[in-house]
Simulated scan of single mutants.
Amino acid sequence: MTTPTPLTGEELTALVDGLAGLPYGGEPVDQRTHALQTAWLAMDAGADDELVVAAALHDIGRARPVRAEHPGLPHEVAGAEFARRRVGERAAWVIARHVPAKRYLVATDPAYHALLSPASVASLKVQGGPMDEREVAEFAAHPLAADAVALRRWDDAAKDPDGPRLAMPTLLAAHARCVAARRV
């Protein structure tokens, strides 16, 4: 495993701000609003700094510069590749698994499917539908599965045009603490 070259605060700001106006698959928010709402929900739930940063970056594979680096990859895979190099392995795993976490939840939580937006229901079909028993067991056995499931739930809830958003200075502070912790 290689040590990531930490994402700078300026780069993080540029990436998040670059999501402004970028459509979010038929949802009533753009990608920037969605990213900052997801991060706010993570922080509100008491997530640690690394998971808050991962929440903000979970769809970063849709950002123009990341797509250009990883053309043709699904957004969660492109985002994970970016995060692996610039944030860390935990963030990369959680970002890569936020789509499978939806499939996991549909297979394991009878009430979950009803919470999905119409756009998310449509994308579920493309993503493979509910996991089968083997996939459920494999996903659940990973030590970071609970983080991916939490991120998925925040992701699903972060589609309110009037909902709270994490302020960029708060996200930057969480990111700076992550970078400082890796240096120790």
Rank of each mutant, 00 (worst) to 15 (best):
A56Q: 12
P65N: 13
K125G: 14
W93Y: 05
T33F: 03
Q37E: 15
D48H: 12
W93E: 07
F82G: 04
V126T: 09
W93Q: 09
F82R: 13
A39L: 09
S120F: 06
W40L: 02
T38F: 07
A54Q: 06
H113G: 07
D49L: 00
G79A: 01
G61C: 00
A101M: 06
V52C: 10
E76G: 02
A42T: 00
L105W: 09
E69C: 03
D44T: 08
P110S: 07
P130W: 06
R103Y: 04
T38N: 11
T33A: 15
G79N: 03
Y112C: 00
R103C: 10
D49A: 13
G79Y: 01
A78Q: 08
A107V: 04
W93D: 06
S120E: 15
M43D: 14
Y112S: 02
Y104P: 06
K125Y: 07
P65S: 14
V87K: 02
V53Q: 05
D48R: 12
R32N: 12
R85N: 10
R64D: 14
V87P: 03
A80L: 02
R64F: 02
L105G: 05
E81K: 14
I95D: 03
A39Q: 04
A119E: 14
V53I: 10
L124T: 08
L105H: 10
E27R: 13
A91G: 06
V53G: 02
A45H: 15
A42E: 08
Q37T: 07
R64M: 01
R84N: 05
A122H: 10
V66E: 12
A45I: 07
R32K: 14
A42H: 10
A96E: 04
R32G: 08
D48E: 15
A45L: 05
V52G: 01
A91E: 01
V99W: 02
A122V: 03
G46I: 04
M43P: 00
R32H: 07
G79W: 00
L41D: 05
L36I: 05
A39P: 10
V52R: 06
H75N: 05
A80Q: 01
K102L: 13
S117C: 00
L36W: 14
A63E: 03
H70K: 02
A68W: 09
R64H: 11
H58R: 10
M131A: 08
L124C: 05
A56H: 11
A83K: 05
A35V: 00
V106S: 09
L51E: 08
A56R: 06
P100I: 00
A92E: 04
M131T: 01
E81M: 04
S123F: 07
